[in-house]
């Protein structure tokens, strides 16, 4: 079954939880990203538009407004580094530097091998163990430059 078809079925399932019109739209976009390289491409937006009866323009507006969505395909793993002040004052900049260095990309970019996209995020609500980052749904705390290295290695290792 092609991905659009899978998405449509997924949306129908999501829509069954709808209590009021529109209240499952953000959930539908989250599900879309899981299927389409962490992004919401046009074909997917069209499918959502058909299923949930919203304009494609509106889906694009949402996809660009909310920071968890992207219209461009992203890497297999999404790294979100917290850049808020509480993580910043406890050696946050060292972590930023190290991450950019070992991934060899800037914020907003994807590594050449397509494995990672590096992004920043505002506070993730786990400042008790800062500095912190998320990779996909996983959270990593008490980061040090050494720890970053081993975490990234772990993900790279899974590929080979």
């Amino acid at each position: 079954m092609d991905k659009v078809q899978v998405l449509k079925e997924r949306i129908r399932e999501i829509e069954s939880h709808q209590l009021e019109k529109g209240d499952m739209l953000l959930s539908a976009l989250h599900a879309t990203q899981e299927l389409f390289d962490n992004s919401i491409p046009l074909e997917a937006a069209k499918a959502i538009s058909d299923e949930l009866d919203v304009k494609v323009e509106r889906i694009y507006e949402l996809a660009t407004f909310y920071s968890m969505y992207s219209t461009k395909p992203r890497g297999k793993h999404l790294i979100r580094l917290c850049e808020s002040l509480p993580c910043h004052v406890i050696e946050g900049p060292k972590i930023t530097k190290k991450l950019k260095e070992i991934l060899n990309v800037d914020f907003g970019q994807t590594t050449k091998d397509g494995l990672f996209t590096l992004e920043t995020t505002s506070c993730l609500g786990i400042c008790g163990v800062g500095p912190v980052m998320m990779i996909d749904d996983e959270t990593y705390g008490n980061l040090t430059p050494e720890k970053i290295e081993s975490i990234v290695q772990k993900y790279r290792g899974e590929e080979s």
Partner: peptide, 8 residues
């Protein structure tokens, strides 16, 4: 019911 946000 729970509804998730999307980062804003």
């Amino acid at each position: 019911s729970i509804r998730p946000g999307a980062g804003a």
